[in-house]
Design a protein around this nucleic acid. Structure first.
Lengths: 212, 212
DNA sequence: ACCTAAACGGACGGGGGCGTCCGTTACCGT
DNA sequence: ACGGTAACGGACGCCCCCGTCCGTTTAGGT
């Protein structure tokens, strides 16, 4: 008796699926999410139809392509949370996540965009944000993080960091590093610092232009 | 004898031209530069052909629509340079330009994008950047601006600020204000501050996707 | 009031991206 | 070896946007 549902893909199909994901990761990473699906298919050496059979639409492809990047994010956050010095841990998280986003243009867009139906990314972000919130609280209590820091500031920074990489320039990673350096110093508790303007509620970013 | 070249537009043509610019400003400001030309035409109450007669292509329309915003930029910079306290002047410039960009989504794109053939925007930016460089130098000499500040940091901040407004959220202005507040504190000379990662050469941002 | 040229705008062609259909290919179990 | 079926991919339809053409309207000088 054969299984009713072919939960097991044929070998060539599996191969193609993997090549598509690889191509998608490479292209999204370099050029952002605006890369045409055809381009992904071409790079993977498959036809458009095959691409669409494996990933019914672009959102799903994006979500699947960045699954491991999300894991990387989680790992970074976990690492930061595990640091005995919460301020040091928080700095680490900011630096590494900024760099991660710097290295992968598409991931930033995917991470900050909650397009409908892509639960994985949203959920991963949820988790990440929550864990960092806790870390920030501890850093505050240790007196190293300024007391008027708000979690939305991190979203702000991420969005800002994204802006840095919107343009395809060389030295993005370098720019991002300097940026996170600046930001961290702004976050650090310092008696000379004046109070900040009130925080803005950012919630989650609206969908990216994938609805073409 | 009539003038050989009709340097004077017919009254209805002049009207339309003004309405088109108005519509373009409003739409670009709210929705960014990706607004279709047809949309601008529709809002201005003219046909597409009329739009294209007055502004041969989108780049030109964008440049003309943001001419006064560029003036506003220049005015802000001039104001900052005129301030007797260079640090205060610099802060003013950063805050106001961030806010200007926050209020006008399209302008940010236009300002940071040097698309070919639009000299006005590029030239205006050139002037602005140069004047601010001078201001920054004076602020450094006054000991208020950190000595490892680099002019490219400002471009970095502008790009980052753009990232904040890439998504259409309410409270953009608020977010931008908080952001500039953070940035200014990071820029301020402070003995507690550790040295920054090296600056990245950003030069000018590559063209925006107007070449569809 | 009339006439001419400037100005208008609906309709068109071109290009590109998304997602789908269907005839063909090739894997895999027997 | 061979048959059945999963998987493939070229070609298609659809939509949106840019920029242009040409028949029609209207301003404004006489």
């Amino acid at each position: 008796m054969t299984d009713r549902l072919p939960h097991t893909l044929r070998s060539d199909a599996l191969d193609n699926r993997e090549r598509i994901l690889e191509a998608a990761r490479a292209l999204f990473s370099d050029d952002g999410l605006d890369v045409p699906m055809r381009e992904v298919a071409r790079r993977a050496g498959v036809g458009p139809a095959t691409l669409y059979r494996h990933f019914p639409n672009k959102q799903i492809l994006v979500a699947d392509a960045f699954a491991d990047q999300l894991d990387a994010c989680r790992a970074i956050v976990d690492e930061g949370c595990a640091d005995p010095d919460p301020w040091h841990g928080l700095c680490l998280v900011i630096e590494k996540i900024c760099e991660l986003h710097a290295r992968d243009r598409g991931f930033t867009e995917a991470f900050l965009s909650t397009y409908p139906g892509v639960k994985d990314v949203a959920a991963g972000r949820e988790y990440t944000v929550k864990a960092v919130a806790e870390l920030a609280q501890r850093a505050k209590e240790a007196g190293r993080l300024r007391s008027d820091f708000v979690l939305d500031d991190l979203v702000l920074i991420l969005m800002a960091n994204k802006g840095i990489h919107a343009a395809t320039t060389a030295a993005q990673v370098k720019a991002s590093r300097r940026f996170s350096g600046l930001v961290i110093q702004a976050f650090e508790a310092c008696p000379r610092h004046a109070p900040l303007p009130p925080a803005a509620r950012l919630a989650s970013a609206p969908p990216h232009g994938l609805s073409r």
